[in-house]
Nucleic acid binder design. Structure first.
Lengths: 199, 199
DNA sequence: AGCTACATACCAACCGGTCGGTATTGACGG
DNA sequence: CCGTCAATACCGACCGGTTGGTATGTAGCT
């Protein structure tokens, strides 16, 4: 018997995180008590504080899970050095599919994004701003080069993209008729159609 | 003297609402205590509960302030019976300018939109869904009529629009270089460019 | 024995909300 | 013009319950 107790094979720490993720996404961070988290995870408060130093650490962990993959993917895409259209399509595809795959985490995080500024989160927020700035820079450069139409500013275009991913958790259903890949395709087609139209 | 005390001419009830609005937008509803609200408003808890039955009423009031104007404007626009492009442009213009004019209220409300389902808010949420459905229906019909390109589903397009307004409070500055009218114009141009491009 | 992995019991602070009280007001009678 | 009265506006102390967090205990593995 590898472990001591009833261990359903999930790992207590992971189970706590999953429970917190569900509850934060449903009710919000502040509205969720530590007691609710441990009840759903099937542990006690002592157990939670054995693995996490504070309630906020749960959020920070989700923060990291959501952003780290996206940032890594961004670097990989940019490193290819392809043309703006291909690059922007790749970014949109990654962020839509990635966000859909972690919709509960994304829901929990995106809602509290504005609030948190407790030192440990500032680094992550800065990383996220870098992501956004990369997208805007890509669009800006392509517009200057005449590859994209200057129909709208990079800010408005980028927020159209991020707005979809931020709201994805409110309407996307993984068992629905439209898979994330198709949504990504639609969004990329729509954005590129606007960006390639004649000025 | 018309009034009794130091009354800066603001009206206590209005001052409480303004204070709550700022704090909810900054910290979120749950993270803001009633004590914080009354401290900033310069009144006491007894004073607040004289005007409002519960903390939630403050949110509901903002809810109403944000939505009622938008819904009324929507009906006015739709009643004109103009073509889809004009109608969509008018809607985008109204929602961007209107949201920018009430950015603090919008920030407070949009963040808590998913959470609240306490009977009184369900009516307002239903109204808001009706708004979204009107936009999607407009796009869907125009696509069926061949006026708009079917490049993306009405859902994705509409969330591109609402995504911008939902995130407006994070980057829009009323004293910034770009007025709300210009952002509205850009967004409308961008969306229509995508929607009018050849399939 | 000592370490990890939890459980149990508990705490001070704070939460939203209530309540009895007071100061000020406008309406009305005389 | 004054006195009376009820209503309004607001105060500040207080309540039960809940919060995030901790100190201590203990069962099992090494």
């Amino acid at each position: 018997m590898g472990r001591s107790k009833a261990e359903g094979g999930a790992g207590v720490r992971t189970r706590i995180l999953a429970a917190a993720c569900d509850l934060f996404a449903e009710q919000g961070y502040d509205a969720t008590s530590v007691q609710q988290v441990v009840d759903r995870a099937g542990v006690t408060k002592g157990g939670l504080y054995h693995y996490f130093g504070a309630k906020e650490d749960l959020l920070v962990e989700m923060y990291r899970a959501v952003f780290s993959e996206r940032l890594a993917a961004l670097d990989t895409i940019l490193a290819q050095g392809r043309d703006p259209e291909w690059t922007l399509r790749a970014i949109i595809d990654d962020i839509v599919v990635g966000t859909a795959a972690m919709r509960r985490e994304s829901a929990a995080v995106s809602r509290e994004l504005a609030t948190m500024d407790s030192g440990r989160t500032q680094r992550l927020q800065a990383d996220w701003r870098r992501y956004q700035e990369a997208v805007r820079g890509l669009i800006r450069q392509a517009q200057q080069d005449g590859v994209f139409s200057p129909v709208a500013s990079p800010e408005v275009v980028s927020w159209s993209i991020f707005g979809v991913t931020n709201s994805l958790h409110t309407w996307f259903r993984p068992d629905g008729p439209k898979p994330a890949e198709m949504i990504a395709r639609e969004l990329a087609d729509f954005v590129l159609a606007g960006l390639k139209a004649p000025a």
